[in-house]
Design a protein around this nucleic acid. Sequence first.
RNA 1: GGGCAGGUGGCGGAGUGGUCAAUCGCAUCAGACUGUAAAUCUGACGACUUUAUGUCUACGGGAGUUCAAAUCUCUCCCUGCCCA
Length: 399
Amino acid sequence: MIQTSEEKINAVLSRGVVDVIQKRELKKKLAKGKQLTIKLGIDPSGADLHIGHMVVIKKLKEFQDMGHKIVLLFGNFTGQIGDPTGKMEARKAKTKKQLEKNAEKYLDQVKLLLDIDKVEVRWNAEWLEKLSFADVVQLSSCFTVAQMMERDMFQDRVSKNMPISMHEFLYPLMQGYDSVAIQADLELGGTDQTFNLLAGRTIQKAYDQTPQDILTVPILEGTDGTKKMGKSENNYIAVDDAPNDMFGKVMSIPDNLIVKYFELATEIPLSEIDEIKQAIKDGDNPMEFKKRLGREIVTIYHSEEAAQKAEEHFTTVFSHHQVPDEIPLKKLDGTSMPLIDLIAENNLAPSKSQARRLVQQGAVRINEEKVQDIDTDINFEKEVLIQVGKRRFLRVIGK
RNA sequence: GGGCAGGUGGCGGAGUGGUCAAUCGCAUCAGACUGUAAAUCUGACGACUUUAUGUCUACGGGAGUUCAAAUCUCUCCCUGCCCA
């Protein structure tokens, strides 16, 4: 028996939530006190989680803390097909092995928020592989072509004369069948998943189950402030980013996202977030709140101490344009080498050509002195400090 | 099954035998300004080096024509539209 106050129920169904389908039903279920089976489906096509992924994980955690059963459902079958969601191109298929490997890594990162021992982990190949063609045909009959075409992204593709493969229609069927297999009471997902989540309801009904309720969470924009956070856009804050990077990335988000990030990526109470919103409106410097945001986020994924250090680092390097305290020191063979090689070979630039350009553009400093001659040789018998651009530092010394 | 149109750099999209490493826009990077925000301005933006009107690799894959091909021919693969 799970006791949950009405206040708490309302909170979990509102903060960072876009839509709850059959809200009244879900409220009743939650109030009743029965342990619910709550599903999150994951296609582990990549293994690097970013804080956009964590929005829904945070919501799961709330339910977990309330005592409900969380089922993390990995699409080791569906991932081989590829969900068309948000992709203008069909995703490339991954092998089952790759997917399972990714899933392991995924769990490692989810652990930072969820109590993984209490989570039930399932793999959908377990049942999807066993379906016969007849089963698939029957599943397909739950939907009409017109219904499938309602999906915004299919419409998008059609209007752009882009291909849609038959198998992409099957994706929502499989995801829906997953809900049947685990008898989900509630499924969570991003708003871009709404169609697939709804398919679960339809299919559960076809299998004489009570249809699951649905809770959708917002899609978090990336650090560029416009596009969905994602690896391909390179606008993401990874869960395993080092504290300094994480803090720096938070600082680079546009001001108008500060409040949204607080709501979706931190544990700060809503009342406090409202105060922040008001303060920014009243003309307080948003930077201060962004720093707070950075600290909160780094604290979640690293520690309070790391957060503090990251902020100090930021202030030193960017606010005061000084060289940070901690710069990696690399020991090199020999006593000197051309500057260009030094930059390229130590990952301060992706190629020698680019290293040359950076030098020519005045982006490179040696011991805090700007260097613009690309033929410079660097003697590192004594320690030498190299800075490329604003944020890349390296100290080198001969062995 | 028939007809038509396509496949170019991270993306969009020019180019239709040499002057093409390929106009332009977006993204990216650097510099200026700043709060590493946004906006704005400037520059860079395949790689390598002997930095040169240099070398190599690239316009779906392969083969060919030519002194010369992203551009022409053949073939294969992929996609969209229309008709049946």
